[in-house]
Write a protein that binds this DNA or RNA. Sequence first.
DNA 1: GAACTTTATTAGACTGGTCTAAAAATGAAG
DNA 2: CTTCATTTTTAGACCAGTCTAATAAAGTTC
Lengths: 259, 259
Amino acid sequence: MATESQKKATVSSTVEDYLKVVLKIEDMKQRASTSRVARHLDVADATVTDMLRKLKKAGLLEYKPYYGAALTPKGRRMAVRILRRHRLLEMFLHQVLGYGWEQVHQEAERLEHAVSDLFISRIDALLDFPAQDPHGETIPDARGFRQVEDDLCLAEAEPGSYSVRKVTNSDPEFLAYLDKVGLRPATRFCLQERTPFQGPLKLLPQSGREPVYLGLEASGSIFVLPLKDRPRAPESDPRAPASRMAGDHAGRSGDEKAG
Amino acid sequence: MATESQKKATVSSTVEDYLKVVLKIEDMKQRASTSRVARHLDVADATVTDMLRKLKKAGLLEYKPYYGAALTPKGRRMAVRILRRHRLLEMFLHQVLGYGWEQVHQEAERLEHAVSDLFISRIDALLDFPAQDPHGETIPDARGFRQVEDDLCLAEAEPGSYSVRKVTNSDPEFLAYLDKVGLRPATRFCLQERTPFQGPLKLLPQSGREPVYLGLEASGSIFVLPLKDRPRAPESDPRAPASRMAGDHAGRSGDEKAG
DNA sequence: GAACTTTATTAGACTGGTCTAAAAATGAAG
DNA sequence: CTTCATTTTTAGACCAGTCTAATAAAGTTC
Ligand SMILES: [Mn+2]
Ligand SMILES: [Mn+2]
Ligand SMILES: [Mn+2]
Ligand SMILES: [Mn+2]
């Protein structure tokens, strides 16, 4: 066993979705507990317990009973791969097939498991290697590197000028609404005021239309980029303005114990 | 139960593949026997017996033990739908993503189950409603109608001038070979002679290169269109030159008993 | 039509993914 | 530290899809 050739290790689409959910939870700096994973996947807790044990046995994550799971480098690699596929597919559906940004997620959720690597590399090239998906989320590159930006959540933003960076919510209704009021990624707006006692936010989208009132709940899934006050070039999307490489490509060994 | 609204009747990708295989066998005017279906799907005979019973119960096919299966109108409708998806996807992969004609089948075999109706209608429009797939097979239209042409199999053709109409073989090696010697759909060639005692066929592709010798086995998957001898416009593909509508859209009732 | 071959069905088992209901561990509060 | 509520695991079941081995029906040959 000298050159330990990396074997295919094909997993089911179910497993891919579990890994992706654990990654998502970890990205939110939360503990990947049984119930949290179950909620994200809409399955029973007992189902998750079973699956986490299986995934642990497969070396895709650490799992401590009554505590939760954490991806291993191998598991993270797989999860990031699916994330990349998902987001590239969303971009493809949006740009090439003319899907609305509220339609892309559902379709990508299935296709991410079905397309080949060739398909992915072809659409990547066709789209000219996009850095973001239609919701403003960063697309991991082919090697699994992820741009990580310090997100400013609109729910915590002070009054001022912003541009929409990303929207982390895939509810079609909600996205269609944002679209209608003019809050798409890369659009600008003014946060005029935060009404007291957890009240709604008053926004003025760039398009100068009516002011928009947004509940705290909703604003929690909108992430923004503060603008250096004086408004400049209109409409160009904000590629990589404040970001660095993440160290989670998980190269050779695995030193991410529970600790 | 007045207006009996047609319900979704979602089936698994496994079921879709079974239906497609039965359709294919019926199209070849053969009896869809247990073992034949099993061979096409590469599963054990016993597995097919089980499944055919299930599909019968679901109203998708007739099944007589020790005899075989025959699609019901409902089953045929579903099978044709998948066939359409498969072929449209192949065309899309070929035309938009630059896949070779020997690469498209495998990918389409998975995607046909995963894409939405919206995806299909978008690529249909993007491709300008193609009538054939990259192998020259007819693509059923959105209503499930199929162009049926009287096929002339190269294995039974007399010496003369022909153009390649379709190739009913998805072995990548074989297709790559045909490509190399210049035998793609819509290309022309001369069948110079049939060597006796089931010997190979001697062909002269239009490109005027070397003569090609083709075994009977191989020529059995190539279907051709006889040319009215005098060569005309070069290269244009032969859309619907001798065809009529098939009556297998299976409209209202089902009168296709075993008989 | 008896014997043999081929084809098909039955029987029984397994895997992956899921569920519900019951039991156990954990954590919060008194 | 005991009690109660919450979270998690265990136990037992189910369904879809598959397999192998054994049996039975159909077809073929003399
Ligand atoms: Mn998405
Ligand atoms: Mn998915
Ligand atoms: Mn094909
Ligand atoms: Mn298929």
